[in-house]
Design a protein around this nucleic acid. Structure first.
Lengths: 234, 234
DNA sequence: TTTGTTGTTGTGAATAATACACTTTTGTGC
DNA sequence: GCACAAAAGTGTATTATTCACAACAACAAA
């Protein structure tokens, strides 16, 4: 280490800082926007539901830590989308000491393929519809992070094509519309929706139809075209 | 400290993490969007220009640290706007050790009132037009932060009324337009601009005109109306 | 009073957003 | 095979919004 690092050395002494990564995981389950929560095994907030997360280790980046913790606590191993949301740095956020926490948002396309599991830190992991959240641990903090993430998601849905990353590989326009409706929390006109989506080339029809009740629907896949993306990770 | 903090204790052992706050300061100087940079006194990057910033202390939040460092390194004490941008958490960002850095953006309304000064850490502090930046310290990292901040600023100008926080308390519409043009880096039609700004009620005319060359211009002040603001700090 | 400089004002065309309801295609039960 | 249920698919008229574009007005200096 070169000279002139004296100030650095001084600052590194005498106190301890930890950084945590918290991850808001969204998926579209039974036509409802849903969030993955864990039931905490340890204090603070034993037995309460919380956003999955944990401390960053020495040899991993913030993003790596987010994905590792997510995998450890929930079994979720591959997600289609990861985006940093915000870093919370108030002095007394955590009773355990000086903890800074960076919140991430993850979007999952096929939640039914994920085997949720208990872990060292979490007694349980479970999907909750955004409209039926339980009381969360960590006072208002986790609730706020969650609502902030939802807000960001609405934004992204308006200005990018992230929505398709939450769909199955093959989907109908009606399904896609239901996802938009659950994220915006309001109804959308079918014709206007289709006009818009198709004019943006966000999706491509495939040579296949769905077979459900009623008239079969054209199936689509995600388009190759990427929308202009504004945030760093968007 | 309650029981069951064992994992926390384990993680806090054996390694050191520091968190830094970097601040991109924008002001509108001589019709040009400008950025405040400091000339580094210490390694790494001695003598090179860099975004002002420094390490967060034990007893201060991230935002407090950002503002304190800004004040220490540049003499800047009051800014009209502060917003968190992004947290960089790669493992080997900094030669001094594991450093995580949160970038902030600050907007200044009356840069000519600020007495820039040298400091412990900075030999010098100086405004640079965004189109005439010097080579920056810290490899590509600081340049990227800066360009990201500029991008974010463009966004904010489109969807909020932050622009007026960069103007003097009294300003003409032409001055405001010049600011928009310097941020967007393109020309704007005068008539359309005025129509838009006035229809949004972003500004209020005051009982005063400017006295420059040519026809006197109506002076305006910031409107009380706040635009809907989407990001956490926006 | 002329010239230079800047501020102020309006209109028409193109595009995008919104509101709105019926027909088509399939499967099922009689 | 016919009536019904269920969901998919489709078009048009109206209203906002955006954009391109140029003449005139107010003042100062010469």
């Amino acid at each position: 280490m070169p000279k002139n690092y004296s100030k650095f050395k001084k600052i590194t002494e005498n106190w301890k800082l930890l950084i945590a990564a918290d991850i808001v995981v969204f998926a579209f389950i039974e036509n409802k926007l849903s969030v993955l929560l864990v039931e905490r095994r340890y204090a603070p907030g034993i037995g309460q539901w919380a956003i999955p997360g944990g401390f960053v280790r020495e040899d991993e980046s913030l993003e790596e830590a987010a994905l590792r913790e997510l995998n450890e606590e929930t079994g979720l191993s591959r997600s289609s989308y990861l985006e940093q949301l915000y870093t919370f740095g108030e002095v007394k956020r955590d009773p355990r000491g000086r903890v800074i926490s960076t919140a991430y948002m993850v979007l999952v396309s096929e939640p039914e393929k994920i085997r949720l599991k208990a872990s060292d830190d979490a007694i349980n992991a479970k999907w909750f519809a955004i409209s039926g959240l339980p009381t969360l641990a960590f006072g208002k903090s986790h609730k706020e992070i969650l609502l902030y993430a939802w807000q960001r998601l609405k934004w992204k849905f308006e200005y990018t094509n992230v929505a398709v990353t939450m769909m199955h590989p093959e989907f109908t326009l009606t399904e896609l519309q239901k996802l938009y409706e659950s994220v915006y929390n309001k109804n959308i006109d079918k014709r206007n929706f289709r006009k818009k989506i198709l004019s943006l080339d966000l999706v491509e029809p495939i040579d296949k139809v769905s077979q459900e009740l009623g008239r079969p629907a054209q199936l689509y896949k995600a388009g190759t075209k990427k929308l202009k993306i504004y945030n760093r990770v968007i």
